[in-house]
Amino acid sequence: MIQVNRVSKIYPENKTVALNNLTLHIERGDFVFLVGPSGAGKSTLIKLIFRENDPTEGSLYFLNRNIARMRAGELLKHRRQIGMVFQDFRLLKQKTVYENVAFALEVIGKSPKRIREKVPEALDKVNLLSKANAFPSQLSGGEQQRVGIARAIVKDPLLIMADEPTGNLDRDNSVQIMKLFENINTAGTTVIIATHAWELVNLMQKRVVTLEEGKLVRDQEWGRYK
């Protein structure tokens, strides 16, 4: 599904080498943890896959299409196949839980009928149907992240990418969030999670890709974060 071929990324502003000759393959249906210290290149890799940035060298393919060479229309389609989850949730404060999730479908032009079908379904998957009319400020951190996940899955993406999704949560909520990602993955969606949370990585027993200074240092099936 995703092929990363000898990719390097150097940020020109401060000449930081974020990725250094990285090669990686992720298959459809994989559940991958990207781990490593701060500045290892985890977030950069996610940004390159989403095409928020372009690589300095090398190439990335998504479903056999070179991401850096995608034209505007193709890029739009590419991004609509990916659900993003953020550490700081990025919910719209003035919208209710329902409206935040519906927003993901509205911006890609889905019909009101489709939205009425899909949003409750997504909220049910994250167990937040009862809080559909609440505003983000009325929810706990864990609940807010579940809304973020519902918003990511509501458009049935092929890939979910999460950057430190449990960074602002306590242990119990973090475990719940990871279990949600596992359920999503079980249903067929590929999941990539960049995290520092070694305890959770070890608990989940999934594929672990370890980066250090932009290089791949370990890639283990059923791995552990040491």
Binding site: R79, I82, M84, R90, L92, F103, V107, I108, G109, R151
Partner: peptide
């Protein structure tokens, strides 16, 4: 700008 950034992450077109 936060809303615009979220819209872009959700796959909104520039014109949208």
């Amino acid at each position: 700008h936060e809303e615009i950034s979220i819209m872009k992450y959700l796959g909104a077109s520039n014109w949208f």
